[in-house]
Amino acid sequence: MAVENFLKSTTPVAGRAVASRRSFAIYTKLQREIVLGMLAPRSTLLELELANRFEVSQGTVREALLLLQEEGLVHRQAHRGTTVADCRAEDAEELIRLRHDIECRGVRRAIVRNGAALADALRGHLEAMQAAADADDEYLLSVHDRAFHSDLFAQADLPPVQPVLARALVHAHRYKILHPDQSRDLKETANRHLAIMAALEAEDADKAADALSHHITTIVDFGPSILEDRT
Protein backbone atom coordinates (compact mmCIF):
# COMPACT_ATOMS: atom_id res chain seq x y z
CA MET A 1 0.00 0.00 0.00
CA ALA A 2 1.40 3.42 -0.92
CA VAL A 3 2.11 5.88 1.87
CA GLU A 4 -0.46 8.32 0.54
CA ASN A 5 -3.13 5.63 0.18
CA PHE A 6 -2.69 4.44 3.76
CA LEU A 7 -2.73 7.96 5.17
CA LYS A 8 -5.80 8.85 3.13
CA SER A 9 -7.65 5.74 4.27
CA THR A 10 -7.08 6.52 7.95
CA THR A 11 -7.48 10.30 8.00
CA PRO A 12 -10.73 11.45 9.64
CA VAL A 13 -12.68 13.89 7.49
CA ALA A 14 -16.12 13.72 9.09
CA GLY A 15 -18.14 16.90 8.93
CA ARG A 16 -16.45 18.45 5.90
CA ALA A 17 -15.34 17.73 2.36
CA VAL A 18 -12.36 15.50 1.69
CA ALA A 19 -9.21 17.56 1.20
CA SER A 20 -8.01 18.24 -2.31
CA ARG A 21 -5.29 16.09 -3.81
CA ARG A 22 -2.78 18.94 -3.54
CA SER A 23 -3.54 19.72 0.10
CA PHE A 24 -3.39 16.03 0.93
CA ALA A 25 0.08 15.77 -0.61
CA ILE A 26 1.20 18.66 1.60
CA TYR A 27 -0.35 16.99 4.62
CA THR A 28 1.60 13.77 3.99
CA LYS A 29 4.89 15.67 3.66
CA LEU A 30 4.27 17.67 6.83
CA GLN A 31 3.17 14.58 8.74
CA ARG A 32 6.45 12.89 7.83
CA GLU A 33 8.46 15.92 8.97
CA ILE A 34 6.56 16.12 12.27
CA VAL A 35 6.82 12.39 13.02
CA LEU A 36 10.56 12.37 12.27
CA GLY A 37 11.19 15.57 14.24
CA MET A 38 12.26 17.61 11.21
CA LEU A 39 9.57 20.05 12.37
CA ALA A 40 10.32 20.27 16.07
CA PRO A 41 7.70 20.07 18.83
CA ARG A 42 6.28 23.51 19.73
CA SER A 43 7.68 25.10 16.56
CA THR A 44 5.51 27.58 14.67
CA LEU A 45 4.08 26.91 11.21
CA LEU A 46 3.22 29.95 9.13
CA GLU A 47 0.68 29.50 6.37
CA LEU A 48 2.33 32.07 4.09
CA GLU A 49 5.75 30.42 4.43
CA LEU A 50 4.26 26.99 3.72
CA ALA A 51 2.30 28.35 0.75
CA ASN A 52 5.53 29.76 -0.70
CA ARG A 53 7.42 26.55 -0.02
CA PHE A 54 4.86 24.33 -1.74
CA GLU A 55 3.83 26.94 -4.34
CA VAL A 56 0.14 26.75 -3.47
CA SER A 57 -2.48 29.06 -2.02
CA GLN A 58 -2.82 29.62 1.72
CA GLY A 59 -6.25 27.99 1.50
CA THR A 60 -4.65 24.77 0.26
CA VAL A 61 -2.13 24.89 3.12
CA ARG A 62 -4.96 25.51 5.58
CA GLU A 63 -6.71 22.31 4.43
CA ALA A 64 -3.51 20.34 5.07
CA LEU A 65 -3.10 21.87 8.52
CA LEU A 66 -6.68 20.98 9.40
CA LEU A 67 -5.95 17.32 8.64
CA LEU A 68 -2.90 17.48 10.90
CA GLN A 69 -5.00 19.13 13.59
CA GLU A 70 -7.48 16.25 13.47
CA GLU A 71 -4.59 13.88 14.25
CA GLY A 72 -3.45 16.11 17.10
CA LEU A 73 -0.10 16.76 15.42
CA VAL A 74 -0.61 20.53 15.32
CA HIS A 75 -2.58 23.04 17.34
CA ARG A 76 -4.36 25.90 15.59
CA GLN A 77 -5.60 28.93 17.53
CA ALA A 78 -7.37 31.98 16.18
CA HIS A 79 -5.01 34.97 15.90
CA ARG A 80 -2.15 32.89 17.30
CA GLY A 81 -1.29 30.68 14.34
CA THR A 82 -0.32 27.02 14.20
CA THR A 83 2.22 25.20 16.35
CA VAL A 84 3.53 21.65 16.16
CA ALA A 85 2.18 19.58 19.04
CA ASP A 86 4.47 18.74 21.93
CA CYS A 87 5.67 15.15 22.31
CA ARG A 88 5.35 14.37 26.00
CA ALA A 89 5.63 11.07 27.83
CA GLU A 90 2.33 11.60 29.66
CA ASP A 91 0.43 12.06 26.39
CA ALA A 92 2.06 9.02 24.80
CA GLU A 93 1.36 6.88 27.84
CA GLU A 94 -2.35 7.69 27.96
CA LEU A 95 -2.73 7.12 24.22
CA ILE A 96 -0.94 3.76 24.48
CA ARG A 97 -3.28 2.71 27.31
CA LEU A 98 -6.24 3.71 25.15
CA ARG A 99 -4.79 1.91 22.15
CA HIS A 100 -4.29 -1.24 24.24
CA ASP A 101 -7.95 -1.38 25.22
CA ILE A 102 -9.18 -0.66 21.70
CA GLU A 103 -6.98 -3.20 19.91
CA CYS A 104 -7.10 -6.06 22.41
CA ARG A 105 -10.89 -6.04 22.43
CA GLY A 106 -11.13 -5.39 18.71
CA VAL A 107 -8.97 -8.36 17.68
CA ARG A 108 -11.37 -10.80 19.34
CA ARG A 109 -14.26 -9.38 17.35
CA ALA A 110 -12.16 -9.35 14.18
CA ILE A 111 -11.27 -13.05 14.52
CA VAL A 112 -14.91 -14.00 15.04
CA ARG A 113 -15.86 -12.10 11.90
CA ASN A 114 -12.96 -13.05 9.62
CA GLY A 115 -11.00 -16.00 11.01
CA ALA A 116 -7.67 -16.93 9.42
CA ALA A 117 -8.32 -14.58 6.50
CA LEU A 118 -7.04 -11.79 8.76
CA ALA A 119 -3.47 -13.04 8.51
CA ASP A 120 -3.63 -13.18 4.71
CA ALA A 121 -4.92 -9.62 4.57
CA LEU A 122 -2.08 -8.32 6.76
CA ARG A 123 0.85 -10.25 5.30
CA GLY A 124 1.57 -7.52 2.75
CA HIS A 125 1.99 -4.95 5.52
CA LEU A 126 4.43 -7.22 7.36
CA GLU A 127 6.50 -7.71 4.21
CA ALA A 128 6.44 -3.95 3.57
CA MET A 129 7.67 -3.31 7.13
CA GLN A 130 10.53 -5.76 6.67
CA ALA A 131 11.46 -4.13 3.34
CA ALA A 132 11.41 -0.66 4.93
CA ALA A 133 13.64 -1.96 7.73
CA ASP A 134 16.09 -3.35 5.17
CA ALA A 135 16.10 0.08 3.49
CA ASP A 136 16.64 1.80 6.86
CA ASP A 137 13.50 3.90 6.28
CA GLU A 138 12.05 4.51 9.72
CA TYR A 139 9.14 6.62 8.53
CA LEU A 140 8.00 4.14 5.88
CA LEU A 141 8.25 1.38 8.48
CA SER A 142 6.03 3.51 10.72
CA VAL A 143 3.50 3.97 7.90
CA HIS A 144 3.16 0.24 7.25
CA ASP A 145 3.21 -0.56 10.97
CA ARG A 146 0.25 1.76 11.46
CA ALA A 147 -1.44 0.27 8.39
CA PHE A 148 -1.06 -3.23 9.87
CA HIS A 149 -2.77 -2.28 13.11
CA SER A 150 -5.36 -0.03 11.48
CA ASP A 151 -6.41 -2.68 8.95
CA LEU A 152 -6.55 -5.37 11.64
CA PHE A 153 -8.86 -3.23 13.76
CA ALA A 154 -10.95 -2.28 10.72
CA GLN A 155 -12.03 -5.93 10.55
CA ALA A 156 -13.72 -5.51 13.92
CA ASP A 157 -16.22 -3.23 12.11
CA LEU A 158 -16.25 -0.40 14.65
CA PRO A 159 -15.85 2.62 12.33
CA PRO A 160 -16.51 5.37 14.92
CA VAL A 161 -13.49 4.12 16.89
CA GLN A 162 -11.14 3.95 13.90
CA PRO A 163 -10.07 7.65 13.99
CA VAL A 164 -9.31 7.34 17.72
CA LEU A 165 -6.99 4.43 17.04
CA ALA A 166 -5.36 6.29 14.13
CA ARG A 167 -4.47 9.18 16.44
CA ALA A 168 -3.11 6.82 19.11
CA LEU A 169 -0.99 5.02 16.52
CA VAL A 170 0.67 8.09 15.04
CA HIS A 171 1.48 9.61 18.43
CA ALA A 172 2.98 6.40 19.81
CA HIS A 173 5.24 6.12 16.79
CA ARG A 174 6.21 9.77 16.94
CA TYR A 175 7.13 9.51 20.61
CA LYS A 176 9.29 6.43 19.99
CA ILE A 177 11.09 8.04 17.05
CA LEU A 178 11.73 11.36 18.80
CA HIS A 179 13.10 9.76 21.96
CA PRO A 180 16.28 7.86 21.00
CA ASP A 181 16.33 6.00 24.32
CA GLN A 182 13.09 4.31 23.20
CA SER A 183 14.32 3.22 19.78
CA ARG A 184 15.18 -0.32 18.67
CA ASP A 185 16.59 -2.02 15.60
CA LEU A 186 14.21 -1.52 12.67
CA LYS A 187 14.26 -5.18 11.70
CA GLU A 188 13.33 -6.09 15.26
CA THR A 189 10.51 -3.56 15.13
CA ALA A 190 9.09 -5.20 12.00
CA ASN A 191 9.48 -8.75 13.29
CA ARG A 192 7.67 -7.95 16.54
CA HIS A 193 4.50 -8.48 14.49
CA LEU A 194 5.28 -12.15 13.82
CA ALA A 195 3.72 -13.29 17.11
CA ILE A 196 0.50 -11.44 16.24
CA MET A 197 0.46 -13.04 12.79
CA ALA A 198 0.95 -16.53 14.26
CA ALA A 199 -2.01 -16.05 16.59
CA LEU A 200 -4.19 -14.79 13.73
CA GLU A 201 -3.23 -17.75 11.56
CA ALA A 202 -4.23 -20.08 14.40
CA GLU A 203 -7.52 -18.17 14.85
CA ASP A 204 -6.71 -18.08 18.57
CA ALA A 205 -8.42 -15.00 20.02
CA ASP A 206 -6.82 -15.33 23.46
CA LYS A 207 -3.36 -15.73 22.00
CA ALA A 208 -3.93 -12.82 19.62
CA ALA A 209 -5.09 -10.53 22.42
CA ASP A 210 -2.09 -11.55 24.54
CA ALA A 211 0.31 -10.96 21.64
CA LEU A 212 -1.18 -7.53 20.97
CA SER A 213 -1.09 -6.68 24.67
CA HIS A 214 2.60 -7.46 24.90
CA HIS A 215 3.32 -5.71 21.60
CA ILE A 216 1.54 -2.49 22.57
CA THR A 217 2.78 -2.25 26.15
CA THR A 218 6.40 -2.70 25.07
CA ILE A 219 6.40 -0.16 22.23
CA VAL A 220 8.10 2.24 24.62
CA ASP A 221 9.42 1.73 28.13
CA PHE A 222 7.29 3.45 30.75
CA GLY A 223 8.27 1.11 33.57
CA PRO A 224 7.39 -2.42 34.71
CA SER A 225 3.82 -2.32 33.38
CA ILE A 226 2.02 0.48 31.62
CA LEU A 227 -1.25 -1.15 32.65
CA GLU A 228 -0.69 -0.60 36.35
CA ASP A 229 -2.88 2.08 37.90
CA ARG A 230 -0.91 5.20 38.72
CA THR A 231 -1.85 8.05 40.99
Rank of each mutant, 00 (worst) to 15 (best):
V35L: 09
A147Q: 10
S225Y: 00
I96G: 10
P180W: 00
R97M: 05
L50H: 06
G115Y: 03
K187H: 12
D181K: 09
A78D: 12
A135I: 04
K176N: 14
N52T: 13
H144V: 05
S9M: 10
A2S: 14
L165F: 00
A209S: 14
P41C: 06
G72D: 07
L118Q: 00
A17P: 03
L50A: 10
Q69L: 12
A89M: 12
V35P: 04
E228L: 11
M1F: 01
L48E: 12
Q31V: 08
T11C: 14
Y27S: 03
D185W: 01
E71Q: 14
V170R: 14
I216K: 08
D210L: 07
R113A: 15
E71M: 12
A156N: 11
Y175V: 06
R109L: 13
A135T: 07
V170T: 13
L212T: 07
P41K: 02
A199R: 00
R174K: 03
L73G: 05
R174H: 02
F153R: 09
V161E: 13
D120V: 11
E103R: 00
F153N: 07
A25I: 02
Q77L: 14
I196F: 02
L67Y: 05
P12W: 03
M1C: 03
D136C: 07
H215P: 00
A2Y: 02
G124A: 08
T217W: 01
C104S: 14
G124N: 11
A172S: 15
R123I: 02
F24V: 07
F222N: 13
A128C: 08
T11D: 11
I196D: 06
I102N: 04
P163V: 07
V61E: 07
A147H: 07
T189Q: 10
D181R: 11
I111D: 04
E188P: 01
R53K: 11
A64R: 04
A172Y: 08
M129V: 00
F54H: 12
S43C: 10
S213L: 10
I102S: 06
I34G: 03
L126Q: 10
Q58S: 06
K176E: 15
S57P: 05
I177D: 02
L194G: 07
A209V: 04
L39S: 08
S23V: 12
R76F: 00
G72L: 02
F153W: 03
K176C: 15
E70P: 00
